[in-house]
Computed example of a mutant assay.
Amino acid sequence: MQRLWDISPPVDARSPVFPGDTPYSQSWAAQIAPGCPVNVSSITLSPHVGAHADAPLHYDPEGVPVGALDLDPYLGRCRVIHAIGKRPLVEWSDLAHAVGDLPPRVLVRTYERALLDRFDNDLSAFAPETIERLADAGVRLVGIDTASIDPADSKALASHQVIRRRGLRVLENLVLDDVPEGDYELIALPLKLMTADASPVRAVLRRP
């Protein structure tokens, strides 16, 4: 049997969003009642709510939307590395204990317990030099358990710009609280949203 880790936070009206972004809301177009056999709802949300994949369009005006991305980076061998409490930036030295023979995907845990009920203005992010060195090591996708790979107040988005320049993909808002360090298979496929700058994912890890 294979063990499965669900590394996606719950998504509902209580889900934190980046200040100014669109929160999750849901309304009912139809509800089960005499003459109506089904419940049908409509939802409104930013594609950055919950666990999500950023598309190049998010940080590059000429970037491709999420629905046009190759799915291969979001599926396959992955390493989870703990850098708990490393703020404001995760440096290469914080990962150095676990970077030997890296697989193409790296997810970094920074929280002891992920914040699921409020936005963290002091979130941990990647130092751009860390992204550069991960790319040099052959990593194609990076992920983090915070809302952004850049500090919340960043305007330059230096780590996003490294991602853009080096052609990496990114996952944000993961929940890695109960995941031991080590190697897994990642499955975190974005939706085929053909004009969107990001997509929610149901991110899971599994290992034999």
Rank of each mutant, 00 (worst) to 15 (best):
D54E: 14
P103E: 08
V99F: 01
V38R: 09
P151S: 01
A98F: 02
R166C: 02
R118K: 09
R118D: 12
R166L: 03
P128H: 00
G50H: 11
D178M: 03
I43C: 02
R79Q: 04
I84D: 05
V38H: 06
G67A: 06
K155H: 10
L189T: 05
E91N: 10
D178F: 05
Y59G: 07
E172V: 05
G67T: 06
A29V: 13
A196W: 06
A114F: 01
V142S: 09
G20Q: 10
L141V: 01
Q26I: 12
A137F: 03
L115N: 09
L189Y: 07
L157C: 04
R206L: 01
R79E: 04
E129M: 09
R207H: 08
A30V: 12
G143N: 06
R3E: 15
A156Y: 00
P73C: 05
V108M: 11
G50R: 06
D117N: 11
I131Q: 13
G76R: 05
A152I: 03
A51V: 04
Y74R: 01
P180S: 04
I81R: 02
R206C: 02
T195V: 14
L174M: 10
S46F: 14
D60G: 08
A196P: 04
P47A: 02
N121Q: 10
D178N: 14
S159D: 03
P200S: 03
R202K: 15
V179K: 00
A196H: 12
S27Q: 13
K192P: 00
H97C: 08
L71A: 07
D21P: 09
I163Q: 08
L4K: 13
V170P: 02
P208L: 06
V106C: 10
P104A: 06
D178C: 09
S93N: 11
D178S: 13
R202G: 11
P9I: 12
P208C: 03
E172T: 07
P128E: 07
A53G: 00
V90P: 14
V80A: 01
V170L: 12
